[in-house]
Amino acid sequence: MSRSQDPQRPLFPFGNPIRMILPKTSNLSPRLLAILNSFEETMSERLKTLRPKDSENILSLSWMISALKSLSAIHNDVKSLITSLELAVSDWNEKWIDVYLDNSVKLLDVCIAFSSEISRLSQGHLFLKCSLHNLDCATPQQFTKARSSLDGWKQHVSSKNPRLQKCFGILDDLINTLDLPKIKNSSKGKVLMHAMYGVRVVTVFICGVIAAAFSCSAEKLSDLKAPETCLWAEAFTNLQVFGHGQIRNVLSTGKVTAINECYLVDASVMKLCRLTQHGDDTEAMRSSITDLREGVDRLSQRLDLLAKEVDVFFQILLTGRNALLGNIRIGSDFSNSMQKNNYAEGPTVR
């Protein structure tokens, strides 16, 4: 994955995949062209809804929830496109199947990494609940216990998740394999590969943003270029420019936690740490406790919602893989390699 300090490298080392998949000279039937255009226009509209307003923060759990909902919808749109194309699995090129299975298993691992990080943040939430319980008692002894819990939160939220770090290498691999083989003698195949390419670009972008937010590192971002031939290109570029720009600006300040909901909680924690040193039950103390309680409730609710969306996306990927594997002819030369890629787990922390 390209890093901000690295020289700019060409995104397509083997040529523009879109030019190979669907050159301008391709003669698609009006029906196939309508199917493709409908898919791309829908994806464009989904991307536009993810463009935050200038005052909103893309580094938030609420944006991640919306982004994963849109991503799940886009992956479901591909299933509908395949149905519309009436392209049976038996007509798929083995290379397409190989690419699909390889990418999907990598994305399943990304989902597991995200679930692990959500679980880690949820565990940190226990420190905050314990602290609030002790602060409600308003005694010097309980203030001491509260400070200990608040310190526990600060240490926990600043720690690193090894599972999360591994997913950046996975995203690297997905970017490095964005190029696709030239499709010959299959107009339906060209439409399918054209659509799947767009899905892969958007998937890598959204997963990259979430991973960068969780890791609090802008170096993990990769700027992808959308070919102008795609109807979703403008919406994607606008979203990426705004999103990556905002993330880099926020993370350049050296924040320990970049996610908005966590940052607000952390600000309340820091304020309460100062106030509890004196042990006074002041109005400022009570106001800060209220702020922390509201922030903790918001954080908990959104972590739960995000966990559900990660699971939905995981199940969509898994269902698609299983459906494809179930339709592969038994005894084909390709079946053994595909069986090694089979996945049966949910996005649970292992």
Rank of each mutant, 00 (worst) to 15 (best):
N336V: 14
L324A: 07
N327F: 06
V269N: 01
G346L: 13
D304F: 14
I35H: 14
R46E: 10
P162D: 01
R46F: 06
W63F: 07
E45N: 14
S70Y: 06
R298P: 00
K255C: 07
N76W: 03
G346S: 11
D6G: 02
F214P: 00
A88Y: 13
S215A: 12
S62K: 08
T42N: 13
K48T: 11
S335Y: 13
I259A: 00
G279R: 05
L164Y: 05
A218C: 03
Q339I: 14
L178W: 03
L85M: 09
V265I: 00
K340I: 10
Q123W: 08
K48M: 10
K145R: 11
K154C: 08
L231M: 12
A233F: 00
V78F: 03
M43V: 11
V199L: 06
F314E: 10
A88G: 11
N76E: 12
L28E: 04
S90G: 10
S84G: 03
Q246L: 08
L28F: 04
Y343V: 14
L128G: 05
R51T: 12
N176K: 13
L132V: 02
I328C: 09
M196P: 03
L61P: 01
L231W: 09
T290D: 12
T139P: 02
E228R: 15
D291T: 02
L292M: 09
L28K: 02
F334G: 15
C207V: 12
K182A: 15
S148Q: 15
G254E: 13
Q240Y: 02
N249Y: 08
L221I: 00
I18L: 15
I112F: 07
K69E: 13
S187Y: 02
L33N: 15
S148M: 13
K24I: 09
A267V: 12
L150A: 03
I74V: 09
S288N: 01
V310N: 00
V202N: 03
L108P: 05
A211Y: 02
L71W: 00
H156N: 01
Q5C: 00
S38F: 08
I170K: 04
L128N: 07
L239F: 03
N336W: 13
K166R: 14
P30T: 10
A211S: 11
A138E: 15
L33S: 12
I175V: 11
S122K: 09
A235R: 05
N93Q: 14
I82Y: 03
R3F: 07
S116V: 03
E86P: 04
K79S: 15
V201G: 04
G245W: 08
R286T: 08
S119Q: 09
S131C: 08
E283A: 12
L178Y: 07
Q155V: 10
